[in-house]
Amino acid sequence: MFENIGWVEILIIVVAGLFILGPERLPSAAAWVGRTIRQVRDYATGARDQLKQEMGPEYEQLRKPLEDLRELRNFNPKQAITKHLWDDQPAEKPNGYPTTGGAPAAIPDRAVDRPLQQGERPPYDPDAT
């Protein structure tokens, strides 16, 4: 529940509560917040247990798709696309460079770069312009 809150944030909340409520009311307010959080957690646990008892085996069939949806919160589209495209680990990426961790890809047969002769025109690719 509070997994992203660090000590700095808690310290800021305590200092703000000290200024807002004052030192005499801060302990009772902190106790009230603790009791309320505990009560909400108990309600959620009780509701889940009651649902599990009433539904029986169908509860697991309902829980599985919900777990899959929970995994979507951590969905990284770049990682998913990379995994989908490169799952079979081809020897060569589309840009011609070898993949990391595999055997180096064969260099495609291309004309060896050489200096142009006097009066020779450079190659022209109409699709590149």
Rank of each mutant, 00 (worst) to 15 (best):
P115H: 06
R121K: 02
R70I: 15
E58N: 05
L18M: 07
M1P: 06
P115S: 06
A16C: 07
V33T: 02
E54G: 11
G96F: 10
Q89I: 11
A16Q: 04
I37N: 03
L21G: 00
P122G: 12
E9W: 00
E120W: 07
D125E: 06
R41C: 14
N95W: 13
E60H: 04
G119D: 03
K64C: 11
A111S: 03
Q118L: 04
E60L: 10
G56H: 11
E9C: 00
D125M: 05
E54R: 11
V8E: 02
E58Q: 15
N4E: 06
L51E: 08
Q79R: 12
H84Y: 14
W86M: 11
I10V: 11
P57Y: 04
P27H: 03
T45F: 12
D127Y: 11
D109S: 08
R114H: 11
P122V: 07
E54L: 15
P122A: 10
K93V: 12
L62H: 05
E71V: 09
R38W: 08
F19Q: 07
G34C: 14
D87F: 14
I20A: 10
R70Y: 14
R70T: 15
L62D: 04
N74T: 14
P126F: 03
L21A: 01
P65N: 01
P77D: 14
L26A: 00
L85D: 09
P123Q: 06
T45W: 09
T82P: 09
L85S: 07
A31P: 06
E92M: 08
I12V: 05
Q89L: 08
G101I: 03
V8H: 02
L18H: 01
Q50T: 06
F19H: 04
